[in-house]
């Protein structure tokens, strides 16, 4: 019973840490946008970076994906899907961006 309560507390803390972390990152993103203005160079880059960090925080603390052997199959699946995504998104943006450039449309 005692061990269970302890485990419960530990898992709940995990969720709260994930929530707190995500909250801080969200606040950071919006305050950066608010203070510096969204069109300053470098601002979108930092927002994107913070978004990426938040994705990882939520994957680890909410979805419990880590490098432990036991959740490897999930991690493999996520990594493979990410690869597919990068190919799809990267490929689309590259090809259509190139097309836009050659057609002298607005610069991408």
């Amino acid at each position: 019973m005692d061990r269970r309560t302890e485990l419960h507390r530990r898992e709940r803390r995990r969720y709260v840490i994930g929530y707190g972390g995500s909250l801080l990152l969200t606040l950071a993103v919006f305050s950066i946008a608010y203070i510096y203005g969204i069109q300053r160079p470098g601002v979108f880059f930092s927002i994107g970076l913070l978004g990426l960090v938040q994705l990882v925080v939520q994957l680890v603390y909410f979805l419990h994906i880590d490098r432990r052997r036991s959740s490897r199959e999930d991690l493999d699946l996520i990594l493979f899907s990410t690869l597919v995504l990068l190919i799809i998104i990267g490929g689309t943006v590259w090809i259509l961006g190139n097309l836009a450039m050659r057609m002298h449309m607005h610069a991408m």
Binding site: V29, A33, I38, Q39, F44, I47, Q58, F62, L63
Partner: peptide, 21 residues
């Protein structure tokens, strides 16, 4: 939880990305 992950992508790319570019 997955929906929240997608939402992070949406605020970053759709909203902030849209406003930047």
């Amino acid at each position: 939880h997955f929906l929240d992950l997608i939402w992070i992508g949406i605020i970053t790319i759709v909203y902030f990305g849209g406003l930047s570019y």
